[in-house]
Amino acid sequence: MKPGLLFASLSAALIASFIAELALGPVAIAPGQVLAALWPARDTNGSAQVIVTAIRLPRAVLAMLVGAILAVSGAAMQGLFRNPLADPSLIGVTAGASLGASLAIVFGGALAGMAGLTVVSIGAFLGAAGAVLLVYTLATRELVTSVTTMLLAGIAIGALAGAATALLEFVATNEMLRRISLWQMGGLDGATWTRVAVLVVVALPVVAGLLALAPALNALLLGESEARHLGFAVDAIKTALIGLVALGVGVSVALAGAIAFVGLVVPHIVRLTLGPDHRLVLPGAALAGAVLLLAADVAARLVVAPAELPVGLLTALVGAPFFILLLRGSRDYAL
């Protein structure tokens, strides 16, 4: 497929999902009113404006940013590890965040949140950051980071954090258990402008930084020595990649819970259509990730209205069949 066509159709899908996210819900708002609400000067209907700008708009922005970060991070990790099965959870982010969130739910109930972030979010971020730092330290000797050791250390730390989380679930009360398992499914229902602001501050440098590293990721596909022979500062690039991914995914997971599937499969969907050149795959994945999570969130809010499904369930339900179709239809993926 021509890159231009894919980017155009993804952009169209993004706009359509964006309008649907703002218009649809328990209170249906006509697209015209949605647009009016976005420009308060022309406001005519107070309640529609409140619903759009205070509830649905931050949620839509949160969904797009989280989707973009998860997908672009997944694409970068697959390139760095030269492994099509890699995703951000491989370096311990998700397991660490789960443990942090569970600790916060079980022991942090009495603590108040700060600046609109709940104790659970802060716990999740600290858990994610701690796990990545540990994995990275384990895999680094004399300033050289072994990617293979890092993968294995990620699996070990992930298993350790998983066991600790399971232990917490074992001692948790029923109410806590339900909160832990809901958190693990991921959800965007806590969207506020404060959270959006935190995520914007993180997302811009993370996405821009990863896009700037696309040529280096292409060279890394050849191997680390080969990338070094081509003049890339490989060790600094690895550190930058891991730092950006840990920061982006850590904050995403803290704000939206563990959303499965986006980081692993969206990059593959983009690669299947555009080939493995990171200069196309990274922006394509960011756009496709935003579309998938936004569309999934629209569905999550509608299918069992007035209740909501956790969006993490929907990303897999929407994305997996599409991915299987693509895999079956493409004989030339050559992986």
């Binding site: 390139g79 030269r82 492994n83 099509p84 040529p215 292409n218 060279a219 596909l221 050849l222 191997g223 020595s225 080969e226 022979h229 081509l230 003049g231 890339f232 080939g275 493995p276 050149d277 030339d332 993926y333 050559a334 992986l335």
Partner: peptide
């Protein structure tokens, strides 16, 4: 420098692989 073993496992086209050499 050409190493004895190559690890490229992603389906870049042959042209894309060669073009990487012009990065510097």
């Amino acid at each position: 420098c050409l190493a004895q073993q190559q690890t490229l496992a992603f389906p870049l086209s042959a042209r894309e692989v060669i073009a990487l050499a012009r990065a510097p």
